[in-house]
């Protein structure tokens, strides 16, 4: 899984100087980091991608030796299944040739392949890893899923217990009938 594309992940370049710097960095960072998931699977991940994970950065700040050595950086709350998805997402979004339309298509396909449980697991993993782009993408996507749903769906989806009395709920429903799902 880790070796699906050549690593051509430079960002759009602005000046020649920047380009030069970027090349230097990519060459230098052809190096990879070893990540170990909660189910004890190790991954060799391009440093340019792994360094986007807040959790990895934090780990390296504490123990900088890990970047050079062969020690695996442990990701306690991420299972291999999620890490594969997260890497897939970041490889695509870092791919310099990916156009806006490609990304949109990719995002749609990415979501379609996930059921609600997987989506939530992935969100938890993204939250733990502290990866902003994917995290925002997931929260927005989940918001899109629930926006036109009714209260019951939202309770089940988030595992929320209803602590309103039937009377209270009826009163609220009546007062805010305009916001009811049937009017959406």
């Amino acid at each position: 899984m880790a070796e699906e594309t050549e690593s051509t992940k430079t960002e759009p370049l602005k000046t020649a100087e920047e380009e030069f710097k970027k090349l230097e960095i990519t060459e230098e960072e052809e190096s990879e980091l070893k990540l170990e998931t909660s189910d004890h699977v190790t991954f060799m991940v391009e440093a340019s991608i792994a360094m986007k994970f807040g959790a990895v950065q934090q780990y390296l700040e504490v123990s900088p030796a890990a970047s050079a050595s062969a020690t695996a950086i442990p990701l306690h709350n991420v299972a291999s299944r999620e890490l594969i998805l997260i890497l897939e997402y970041y490889r695509m979004h870092d791919w310099v040739d990916a156009g806006e339309r490609d990304l949109k298509e990719f995002d749609e396909r990415f979501l379609k392949d996930l059921n609600y449980e997987e989506l939530k697991e992935l969100l938890l993993a993204a939250n733990y890893l502290n990866v902003e782009k994917l995290f925002n993408f997931l929260t927005k996507s989940i918001a899109n899923i629930i926006r036109n749903k009714d209260v019951e769906f939202v309770r089940t989806f988030f595992g929320i217990d209803n602590d309103y009395t039937p009377e209270e709920e009826a009163a609220y429903r009546e007062e805010n009938a305009w916001a009811g799902v049937k009017f959406v």
Partner: peptide, 26 residues
């Protein structure tokens, strides 16, 4: 279960109409 912080993050992208509806989830 999704923890509260994450629920808040998700809800913050919703339109007001959905939020008024979900307010009586709990």
């Amino acid at each position: 279960l999704v923890c509260d912080d994450l629920v808040i993050e998700i809800l913050s992208w919703l339109p007001v109409k959905s939020l008024v509806r979900f307010m009586h989830a709990s």
